[in-house]
């Protein structure tokens, strides 16, 4: 979907705050949201891509003006309501009106310390389709967007690039966000700056993105 999150190349934004203090959290509530969200019960079908999609659907004004962890809060609140674990009224009040039916039990502090903090997302899965492209191949990115979640940024649509590397077969986010886990060949693709931007700073610069095979126009 063409939601507000797809920011690559958008113009009109100001300077980057380069003097931010180097600490993990800048306020107590940022840390509380981080801890709460990481510790929260989640059913198996709350994939990373479903979370991303729910965050992308945040009203644009909130997306652009709220602090990052505050956006997390709103995305997870929406997911909790959608899954029937809490109502909007309960989240607003911070008080339970009833139990959360069928919710899996939450992780313990001990589990975080011994296990959860060392768990990586492994996105590689088996896939019967062999990769159609190899490093050095020229590809053209699909010009159409997607009806739901996608990791194909708008600034790359319709552009021509060169396969830099084949990365194996990875879970396709577009399907995973809908609860369907299937893999596709994944590539890192390089693009000339001058091919992407009318005001490219230096024609030798290159931009790279990871792209699944269905993100390309068929040959």
């Amino acid at each position: 979907m063409d939601t507000i999150h797809d920011l690559g190349g958008r113009q009109g934004f100001g300077r980057v705050d380069t003097h931010e203090k180097e600490e993990a959290f800048h306020s107590d509530w940022e840390a509380r949201i981080y801890g709460t969200v990481r510790a929260m019960t989640r059913p198996g079908d709350w994939s990373i891509d479903w979370f991303r999609h729910c965050r992308e659907l945040t009203p644009p004004v909130d997306y652009l003006t709220r602090n990052y962890y505050d956006q997390w809060l709103q995305a997870y609140a929406a997911m909790l309501v959608n899954s029937g674990y809490a109502s909007v009224e309960e989240i607003v009040a911070g008080k339970a009106a009833g139990p959360a039916p069928d919710a899996p039990p939450p992780m313990t502090g001990e589990f975080v310390r011994t296990t959860a903090k060392n768990v990586a997302i492994i996105a590689e899965r088996d896939c019967e389709t062999p990769p159609a492209y190899a490093p050095g191949d020229k590809v053209t990115v699909r010009s159409a967007g997607a009806p739901g979640h996608t990791r194909l940024p708008a600034y790359l649509r319709g552009r021509r690039g060169v396969v830099e590397a084949y990365r194996g077969t990875h879970i396709l986010p577009d399907a995973n966000a809908l609860g369907e886990e299937r893999a596709e060949p994944l590539y890192t693709v390089g693009f000339n700056a001058a091919n992407l931007w009318p005001d490219a700073e230096d024609s030798r610069d290159r931009m790279y993105a990871d792209m699944w095979e269905s993100y390309f126009e068929p040959v």
């Binding site: 929260m40 505050d70 313990t108």
Partner: peptide
């Protein structure tokens, strides 16, 4: 943030110790 944390703790959807550990 406070409202969400309180609600989830009350509902048993988070363990306060896990929040502190993260």
């Amino acid at each position: 943030a406070k409202a969400l944390e309180s609600l989830l703790v009350e509902k048993g959807l988070v363990d306060p110790q896990a929040i502190e550990t993260w």
